[in-house]
Amino acid sequence: MTSEATATRTVTLEVFRYHPERDDAPSFQSYEVPYREEWVVLDALNWLKDEVDGTLSYRWSCRMGVCGSCGMMVNGRPRLTCNAFLREFMPGPIRVEPLRGFPVERDMVTVLDDFMGKLTDVKPWMIREQEQPVEEGEYRQTPSQLADFKQFSMCINCMLCYAACPVYEHEDEFIGPAALALAQRYNLDSRDQGNAQRQELIWSDEGIWDCTFVGECSAVCPKHVDPAGAIQQAKVEATNSFFLSFLPFTPPGMGR
């Protein structure tokens, strides 16, 4: 098919609209968008904003699945709109909504404060009891030690996992998948010594124990981080630690 022929085809986009200064309630607006085989949903939104309605609001940046800005609900599922091809949803219509579980600032722009606060709370950075002087060189790590946490370090904070999590939707206090996975990422890092500082929050009810292992966070993750796995592993660790605390000694390899 020539590109001219494909350009004449269109697809319907049902777009969530909400402008607090204008609308009492959110609504859906339908637009006809040119269909191109190589277009993703984000391309269609950009076309709409450029050609049809400049007031359409949404976040995006890199267009290559790295920045984590363009997450939206596409036909009810959390997706990065930059890697959701129109052709997956043909013949349409394609429904585009803001990520669920978050307050909506305007159209597809969500309020991120809750996530940002919880992310900071788990201290997702390298904690050392004593910083080693630069002259002593870098903190070294074996490939096996790297493999322990590498997967969890791939998170791009796109929050698709939050939008997929029914627990986060209903429990305001739940720290949520990505932040817990990032906590685990540092806890499992052989160079980090911050376990004890993170423990109280991570092992609390709002932490890992709110999770009921629905597993959809891992299913929707565009970076295969597997937050559900991270949380279950932390649960096993917390349980082991609880029972080991009754022993008069620390078994070899269990000291943390």
């Binding site: 579980g101 307050p103 939707e169």
Partner: peptide
Amino acid sequence: MPGPLPRQKSNTWWNQRWAYR
């Protein structure tokens, strides 16, 4: 000045996908 739309909680979430069911 009207603010952001508060976050929505659905009671039928479990019936929206086979994975949830």
